[in-house]
Structure formats: C-alpha cells, structure tokens
Design a protein around this nucleic acid. Sequence first.
DNA 1: TGTCCACTGGAAGGGAGGGCTT
DNA 2: AAGCCCTCCCTTCCAGTGGACA
Length: 410
Amino acid sequence: MEESVFQPYLRSHPTFRMDREILRPSYIPGKLPHRQHQIDQLAQVLVPALRHQQPSNVLIFGKTGTGKTAVVKYIEQEFKKADASGTADFLYMNCELVDTAYGVLQSVGNRFIENLDQRIPFTGLSTDRVYSMLVEKLDEKKRVVIIALDEIDKIVYKSGDDFLYQILKINDDTKNAKVSIIGISNDLKFTESLDPRVRSRLSDEKMVFPPYNADELKDILEQRTKLAFDNGVASDSVISLIAALAAQEHGDARRALDLLRVAAELADRSGSSTITEQHVQTARNKIDLDTVVEAVKSLPTQSKVILLGLLLNEEAGNPKLTTGEVYTTYCNLCGRAGLPRLTGRRVTDLISELDMLGLVHARVKSFGRGGRTKEIEASVPAMDVLRILERDEFLAGLKGYRIRLQTTLD
DNA sequence: TGTCCACTGGAAGGGAGGGCTT
DNA sequence: AAGCCCTCCCTTCCAGTGGACA
C-alpha cells in the first residue's frame, strides 16, 4: 500500500516539546507579568457591576502589544468567576471586525437572544430599530452589561461618534438595565476628534498602558517559555535577544511572542534541539515577509494593479512616482489586463489605503508650478511581491510584462 | 508679490447586493 | 411585490493649497 505523504513527518519525533497555543498572543496566562497594577485598577472600576450598580466607563490607551486586550480578557475571565449569581454580563468585541454602529448593536443584541429565529439580521433593519430592540431586550433581562470595545478608534474613524453617543445614552432609555463601556484604543489622540459630550461621558476613567521595556519582555518570554517548552530549549541569551528586538519595536509583547514561536518552529523543522540566535534572526525576516505577503494577497485586484505599476516602474529604475504617473501606469496596465478602470479620485483613495497598510510610502509634495501632488514609493521587496502579484488570476495577462524606461534624448 | 499647476481630500450621491416589513 | 434600510464600492464635483517661477 502506498504510504501517505504525512507518514515520514509523523514518524519523526519533534526534537523538543512545544505547546504552540501558549505562545500565541491570544493565550491568556494565569498571571500577567507587569500588569498587576492595571488589573487592580480595572477591577476596582468594574466591581460595582457585581453589586448590580453601574460602573464608570473606562478608556484604555496603549500601543500594540502592551497588554490591553490581554488585561481586558483576563478581567473578563475573573469577572465571570466572581459573578456566580449571574447579575452581570461582560461582552468583548473587536471593532476591527465589527466596525459599524449597526454591527455593534446587532451583535450585542444577539448575545441576549437565545432563539435563533429571532436573531437580529446582519442587514435589513434600520439602526434605530435595532437600537430599540436592544434596549427592550436589556430591560427585560435587568442586567448590568459591560461592553468592551477593542480598537474603538476604528469604528469612530469609520462611522463617526454618533454611535458612541447613542450607546452611551442607553442608560437614559432603559429602566432596569445598566450599560458601561470599556473603550480600548492604541491611538492616544483619538479622543480629540470626539464630540465633547461623548468624550466626557466615555472617559470617566482613563488608563494608559506603557510599553514594556526589555526586562519586562524578558519576564513575559520566560514565563511562556517555561510553560511551552522543556528546560533548555530556549537559552537565556536567546530570550534576551528576542526581548531586545521587540523592545526596539516599541515594546511590543505580541511581536516578542511571535518571534519566539516562529523561531521555535524553525528550530524544530531544522531538527535542532534548541533555539539558536540564528533561528531568531531568520524568524524576524520570515515574519516581516509573511506579513507583507498576507497583506498583498488579500488586496483587491485594483489595488494590486496599482502596486504592480509601482514595482514595475521601480524595476525600470524609476522608484518614485507622482499620483498622475501612478494613474497613467495604472490605466495602462488595466488596458492590458482587460480590467475596468477606476477614476483618479478612487485611485487616490486606494493609494492612501496602501499607504496605511505600509505597502507603499506616500507623502504630499509640492513642485511649485509643477503642481502639488503625492510622491509615492513602494515599500515592499519587489522580487517577492511581484511573484505574488503574478499569481492573481486577473493579472495573469500581465505576467512577464516589463515597463521600458522612457529615455528622452531630444 | 501674485500666478498657476496638479493635484488633495471633503461632500454628496448612485446603484448593487443584502434583507426585513407590510 | 413594493417599500424601506443597511453597507460597500465607486463616481462626480469642487474648493483648497504649497511653493517654483515670472
């Protein structure tokens, strides 16, 4: 009988024990190093909920990987443990996934509707209608509800602050239920854009999570290392290196854990019984490339064409383009690939999106009489990304196409 | 000092795709 | 079936602008 392609890998034993789950940033350990202060503070704010009183609203700030989400999820676990009588609810929601007012109201509402047939549809109703359905449900249940909105700035950026105003006034419209909001944001300046009424209501309490320094990151890594591996797999110097690298990148614990996990996977695959500093360096490059590759793959076709145009120009020795040049190249490529053309205005927006994703670098520049425009430059490795773009079925017609550098001799 | 270029980026609105209500 | 209302993607229109040049 022919053997499965998996057999050789199954037979070969891993060189060391590794529990991948523990190394994921989403894993919440029993203890969060260097965040006890924030945990205590948050617990103090939320404790009234357990006495059927309304806690203050809280705003939590901090850069990525400073433990905001981890602390809130940890508190959620502890809260549910303490709330044995079930007088309160704790809902966690990521506004990156649910990024409209309607979406948030709908998913909060659905948590309180057991009957699947009565669930609020993801579209079709007016927002006001969903709001009153929610108010009615909350009142009926007589609950204290804490809603944690992670990346709350995303939703404000998209839908404005009307929504926050609405959700904060739920307490005026309910008789028996009480609602508190925990807003989590990595943008310190995000409250500036809010309506003053919303701002003051939302930020009864404010908490700022500082970045971890190298020593603190080291403690976090050591804790996870002990849980995930046997002794000796990750040496002290390797952990120090990872901590130092992550500390350079604004003390991002998520980044540190990713580095550790990927380095461990690389070590395992190469048959090494320990993680070496070389594995860490390779892991660093791999993560950077993987992030870019994933971002590029998930781009809509039109954005891919724009990026392709930039990279082809770069190959031809022309790395910096103005918006006008990008648009000309874009139209050109669309023609060749048989794709419909978007307007210049729309392309400007797509360029801004690429900029926000970090795939291109664009800055406004004035050329005096030559006009004011953006100067755009790709900030991804051309070779790797071109290979990915060529795999897109809509861009197949452009495979191997090269832009010839215009040489003006006159 | 004013002009004028090549855009920038806000605002408004259309229409496709989704789904509820009557 | 008609009438709403939602989001998403896109177009049209347009006032605003930084700075080299006359």
